[in-house]
């Protein structure tokens, strides 16, 4: 079925559910094409397992084009594997060599409990957004879109922060399992836009409080998140969030 010539050994984390313990299990794959994506290589593995009557490896994925943020594999010690600025689904087998051994684990963090095999529960991210990652504008309340000009540089910066796909690689790679990059990206996007100003200091306080409540670790500025983020979200967002947090706590009179 596959057409290539790479032979690989996979060590894949298998875990039945969040109540059982898991372990790495070895699999051999042959004839893998370098043009396959990493997930297509897993499709081949799963097809093999099903044909042998075993249960396939469960992993999260959907768009397979690097935008939905669903795929999430920790490959050879790095989230989304060896290439910078790509998601697992965009990683191709040409980034590996014939004969390689590849270790694949789920994201690991207390706030991202394993659901099954390589699938984890990232709903903590949604709850952080629900705590304040929005502008409170009901449908129908908007003025004309061009009434409020926004300097291009600012709009572009907001867009860059908004490019976060919520994959959680930042948490996965951080030695402290901190979610600061994700949270700061949202806070920055809205803090950079005039529409985001009215709630700016409420937002940073409530989102940070929710982030802490979810059990993420504390940032120690190692910068691993920025290096591994598939969308190149910048550490500057964290600095901006810190600054806003300080303003919110020490200058703004509004407490949340």
């Amino acid at each position: 079925m596959s057409t290539g010539n790479m032979n690989l050994t996979l060590k894949v984390w298998r875990q039945k559910n969040n109540k059982t313990k898991g372990a790495l299990v070895d699999y051999k794959l042959t004839d893998i094409s370098p043009d396959m994506s990493f997930l297509e290589m897993f499709d081949v593995l799963n097809e093999q397992l099903i044909n042998k009557g075993e249960e396939p490896v469960v992993f999260d994925h959907d768009c397979r084009e690097g935008i939905c943020g669903m795929c999430s594999m920790f490959i050879n010690g790095r989230p989304h594997g060896p290439k910078d600025l790509v998601t697992t689904c965009q990683l191709h087998m040409r980034s590996f060599k014939d004969g390689d051994t590849i270790v694949v684990e789920p994201w690991r963090a207390a706030a991202f409990p394993v659901v099954k095999d390589l699938t984890v529960d990232r709903s903590a991210f949604d709850r952080i957004i629900a705590a304040g990652g929005f502008i409170s504008v009901n449908t129908g309340n908007a003025q004309d879109a061009n009434n409020l000009p926004i300097p291009k540089m600012q709009a572009d910066a907001a867009f860059e922060a908004a490019a976060c796909i919520g994959c959680g690689a930042c948490v996965a790679t951080c030695k402290n399992a901190s979610a600061m990059l994700f949270v700061s990206a949202k806070i920055s996007q809205l803090a950079l836009l005039p529409q985001g100003q009215p709630e700016r200091y409420r937002r940073v306080q409530s989102m940070v409080a929710q982030m802490d409540a979810e059990g993420f670790g504390n940032c120690t500025n190692t910068g691993a998140c920025e290096a591994e983020c598939p969308k190149g979200i910048s550490l500057e967002n964290i600095a901006r969030m810190n600054r806003d947090f300080a303003s919110a706590k020490f200058i703004s009179e509004e407490t949340v």
Partner: peptide, 22 residues
């Protein structure tokens, strides 16, 4: 921070993304 990651990775390639001293 240790509590934030109760199960450690079998393989973690820290040097690929950050300085050892940080």
């Amino acid at each position: 921070n240790q509590k934030a990651r109760p199960v450690k990775y079998a393989v973690n390639d820290g040097k690929a993304n950050s300085k050892w001293y940080s």
